[in-house]
């Protein structure tokens, strides 16, 4: 299965998650995602996502000059970003749970219809 299609749907939440604890610049964030197991993530997809999340008001950004080279643009999560991450995490968890139950019906049939809380 092509995971790039899957990634498109969850890249927002993934990006927010990897900068939840520490700000990062573009390629740094790409590295974190890959280190987390999302090997197929494309650089440009991450940068575009960062731009979109920033435009949506979920991130803050600042530029750090580097001596002897081009400066780096850092992204950090703000309160709104955290709230979004939290809500999206719940949505994703519920979704993943249902899908897991669908795929493996014998594992826990009771939770299949609507999920239990």
């Amino acid at each position: 299965m092509d995971t790039t299609q899957l990634l498109k749907g969850v890249l927002d939440i993934a990006v927010l998650a990897v900068i939840r604890d520490e700000d990062g610049y573009g390629y740094d964030i790409v590295r974190r995602l890959r280190a987390a197991g999302l090997e197929d993530v494309g650089d440009a997809s991450v940068y575009g996502t960062l731009r979109r999340l920033y435009a949506a008001g979920l991130l803050s950004t600042y530029v750090v000059p580097s001596e002897g080279g081009p400066h780096r643009k850092y992204y950090g999560i703000n309160d709104q970003g955290r709230a979004t991450l939290e809500a999206d995490s719940r949505t994703w968890s519920a979704f993943a749970e249902r899908l897991g139950a669908l795929i493996n019906p014998e594992s826990d049939p009771a939770t299949t219809p609507g999920g239990t809380k």
Binding site: G26, Y27, D43, Y47, R51, G69, P70, H71, R72
Partner: peptide, 12 residues
């Protein structure tokens, strides 16, 4: 907005 810092990312 889209490409600020792009050179640094690409170089890395």
């Amino acid at each position: 907005e889209l490409t600020e810092g792009l050179e640094a990312d690409l170089a890395e």
